[in-house]
Design a protein around this nucleic acid. Structure first.
Lengths: 233, 233
DNA sequence: GTGAGATAAAAGTCTGACTTTTTGGGTCTG
DNA sequence: CAGACCCAAAAAGTCAGACTTTTATCTCAC
């Protein structure tokens, strides 16, 4: 997972990005390229490339004679996969997990509704297979296997919606589901009701019942939100 | 709007980004940094910075001995505001507008529902003011003034939802609304039903009626989708 | 045909010099 | 004392050139 040799600038980013998103540099804080280059022991060219990327994510703004200033969190490109990963790895992971789950609760039901009208036969088959896989691994502490099926299930729904914006959220949903499994109820088996709902969603999509697929998926995401309410303050 | 002097690398991006997102360079197409630098008459350093940014948007991948290869559209960071802008300016603007409108139809109702529970008194006041502004400019071909209020309205709702992911979609919604006004029904006045709905949404949020705010907003976005269906193939 | 090694192409890195913009202060004037 | 103006320095921005590293491909012996 951790590629240690994909370029100096990437390594600098892996250090600076998390630090900034974690709030180690407060908004308005001014950095200087040369100083950073020295700190990370890279040339100015490399440092400049890293700053450019940070700038394209709206994490910082670079202005002549003043330096590289950290922008307030409200301006960050919160949908950038890298920014999401950095924030999920950092201090306010819970808040991040919550806002992403709320996003899921808005998007996934609509995506499921669309999928019911547009999913191909192959996608329906995959979906059913995933649901069955979830059932099969839902008991006996097979959480990792369950997670794999769960992620695949939601990814297929998002792809089958035929909307590119929805499809691109597959990675985000994967992160959220993985985060939930790895940081909360590692001990308990998944909620049986949720498992059943997934099976029913697969059926509804297979049968082309968009309204039902949407409603059932809404139940799933409401459940996920409720789970967060219970387990996190 | 068009800042012509915010750095050479930005100007290169403004040329390359739209070209790539427009599909002028097919996926898998290989570019070379040096060649590009010559073509745009900039130094390699500047070109490299531009390529880095393109790479961070997943528009291209840079590999040694191979070059800079254009990635397939499915891998692009479709939520990057700059990518959105480039695509909206390009060939498949209609498709882009549609997928963004579908996204709106998923997000905005949920955002409105949340806003009803979390909007501050100030936000409620602003919202009401916007709605009244929409009413006032809804007749007599004052489309530009109407658009300003419309954008402000939706932005406030998204912000008032208290969810950072929703809030960040304010710019996207603004682009969509502006696109609609400027490229479709420039001649006709806004749909009176939509205007009424906005007033009602503002009222529902003011009264803290989340369910009603959500349902009304759903009607607004369904209307927007339907409008697209009617006016675009 | 297959595997090992040579080759070269392209990205990656570093350095140093130069340019441009911007800010903050100092000065001059009213 | 206030305000306009100018100057100098600071930092980003740009450029050119040399060097390193990776890696796809080609060659050649087996």
């Amino acid at each position: 997972m951790t590629t240690t040799a994909r370029g100096l600038h990437a390594r600098v980013l892996d250090a600076l990005g998390p630090a900034i998103t974690a709030g180690e540099y407060p908004p308005g804080c001014v950095l200087r390229t040369d100083e950073l280059a020295q700190r990370f022991e890279v040339s100015r060219s490399v440092m400049r490339e890293a700053v450019r990327v940070l700038e394209s994510m709206h994490l910082v703004a670079s202005r002549r004679r003043v330096g590289v200033t950290v922008r307030p969190a409200a301006e960050w490109d919160v949908y950038d996969p890298q920014v999401i990963r950095w924030r999920l790895a950092g201090r306010d992971r819970p808040r991040q997990l919550r806002s992403l789950t709320v996003l899921r609760s808005a998007v996934e039901p609509v995506a499921a509704g669309l999928a019911a009208r547009r999913a191909s036969a192959g996608q329906c088959a995959e979906l059913t297979e995933c649901a069955l896989g979830m059932v099969a691994t839902s008991r006996g502490h097979q959480l990792e296997a369950y997670l794999v099926h769960d992620i695949a299930f939601h990814r297929i729904v998002l792809n089958a919606s035929g909307n590119e914006m929805f499809a691109r959220l597959g990675d985000v949903v994967a992160e959220v589901l993985a985060g939930r499994t790895h940081h909360q109820v590692m001990f308990a088996d998944p909620d049986p009701a949720a498992v059943t709902l997934h099976v029913q969603v697969a059926a509804a999509i297979r049968e082309g019942d968009g309204a039902r697929a949407e409603e059932l998926t809404r139940e799933i995401t409401v459940g996920a939100l409720h789970e967060l309410d219970v387990l996190a303050p």
